[in-house]
Amino acid sequence: MVVTKPLSTKLPTPLVRRMFQHGDVPFKIIIVLATLFTLALVVGVGVMLWLFTSVTRMDLGFSFVTSKTWNPTGSQFGALPFVVGTLITSILALIISVPLGVGIAIFLAELCPARLRAPLGVMVELLAAVPSVVFGLWGIFVFVPTVVKPLGNFLKNAFGTSGDVIDLPLFHGPFYGFSYLAAGAILAVMVLPTIAAISRDVLLAVPGSQREGAFGIGCTRWEAIWQVVLPYGLSGILGAVILGLGRALGETMAVTMVIGNVAQLSGSLLSPGYTMASVIANEWGESSTPAYASALLEIGLLLFIMSVLLNLLARLLVWSVQRRNPQQHA
């Protein structure tokens, strides 16, 4: 018969250590607290915004969102131009940056020679490290005059009022450079590294066996990328686009510097506009009356709700894609 001694007689454990299960209990407490703190922050911001905006919410109700006149001195507060401005610039930014960013990701992950991959990748990521105000300055002095202006003039001539090609209201009206188009374009540049870098990581994580399967059946490189690698990474790429959208919605400084800051509602990309973040940053110092302050805070509340809703929507999209194409392997 074998006599086994309990381990504890050889290695006596201190009482305190045993009480806390060798540190597992304190560790768990710290982790749970950190999680709750994050949650509390989000809820707290929402509640704070809700409470501090009671003046305009009571007075204006839903018309705050639907009214298009923003005249603080006349106590007219309509947030529609800002909501529309934020949506237009963000969507424009995605329209430009998603194809570019995914294209960069495809190049870096699939086509680029291995020894160029790291340096090029670092350069793309560096783009994300440029401070927003620097992008704004660069936009004012370089990007808008050399890229946006010629592009806008071309669009105006081709598609504007009695344009050469076709008349699109999207490109009507006078064009001076600072516009939705300029803001959307600069946002695209700022969002680009996020989308490109994350999409690249997603594509690099697609198992090599998937590519082998595609090539082994007679796919060209194009077909393998387009029909196997990209669909496999679709949910991850959507995630990258969501992160980009999040940045575009909230971006303040660079947009404020190139959008023109005119609180008007316009269907033309060439006219100047305003975004929610820009108006808060610009006018906070002038908010002399409680109603004015409340109106700006309510714009903040709207932006907050919009971001949360868009994130939820996007998460649903990712989830439904993953559900359709589960990727676990046997």
Binding site: P207, S209, Q210, E212, G213, A214, F215, G216, I217, G218, V228, P231, Y232, N325, P326, Q327, H329, A330
Partner: peptide, 15 residues
């Protein structure tokens, strides 16, 4: 590669 097909070590169906 179409004429000479291949089956790999680990099953690799597409999702």
């Amino acid at each position: 590669r179409r004429r000479v097909g291949m089956v790999f070590q680990r099953p690799n169906p597409f999702p």
